[in-house]
Amino acid sequence: MSRASVPKLMLFVLLATIPAAILRLTLEGPTLSLQLLAGPMGALAGEALLRRSAASLRDGSALLTGWLLALALPASAGAALTALSGGLAIALGKAPFGGLGHNPFNPAMVGYAALLMLFPLASVDGMSGATPLAALASREGLTIAEWVEAQPGPWGTGPGLALSLAFLTGGAALLLRRAIPWHAPAGFLLGLLGAAVLAYDGGGSHSAGHPLFHLFSGSALFAAFFIITDPVSGAHTPPGRLAMGVLAGALTVLFRSQGPFPDGVAFAVLLANGAGPALDALAEGRRQSRA
């Protein structure tokens, strides 16, 4: 990058998701493009209504929030609900806190969680390999090995894996260009794999799933490079970001295997964001109660 600026940074993150977006369009059909347009439009509309400043539309943050949200939502959400979700992301997650630079929670995940609670059926994570994730949540006593054998085709090499690799590519580009600090993604992958390894019992009927399955399923890699990496929300210090990532990764495994929803990334990220200021305070060695 030449001289960095906030809009350039946002645009670069957006560009890094283009391979994954193209892959999703090829896999799920051109109607998905409506959704990918609706997300940013909903978020920009929310920003325009609530912030009432042209500058806040040009900084690219609302555009990116809506875009990431549209990428996170399954095609079953549709354009209308995606736009609504984009609006909610800004209205609940960003504008009331003072706009750019002040939101404590990832706005895209706020919008995602809001939609998940308002319309549980529409936003069941159908993104990448969510069908295996949903099945994992309710595989009714089958061991992981039996269940994998019962699947049509090897899940590890399906479109879910391809999409995960597309996000991994984009994420690697972001890290190589130093557009995002490495701490949160490293922590997230560490936490996710660590928790999955600890919970893995070799594939028994109560197993939480193979660690690699967790890594390449659902939105794990997407979250690792494009969600937990939101610089504004959550922790702001390098150690704080690392710890927040670990927390989000571990919670993702916990929510996937124990929670009511097939994928738990959104709630894991929101919870970890909430712990961010406390983790920063720990990193700075300052007491929480100090005025």
Binding site: V6, L9, L100, G101, R178, I180, P181, P231, V232
Partner: peptide, 10 residues
């Protein structure tokens, strides 16, 4: 613009 805590300064 406001600080977005991008961490480029760290």
């Amino acid at each position: 613009m406001p600080c977005i805590h991008c961490g480029a300064c760290v």
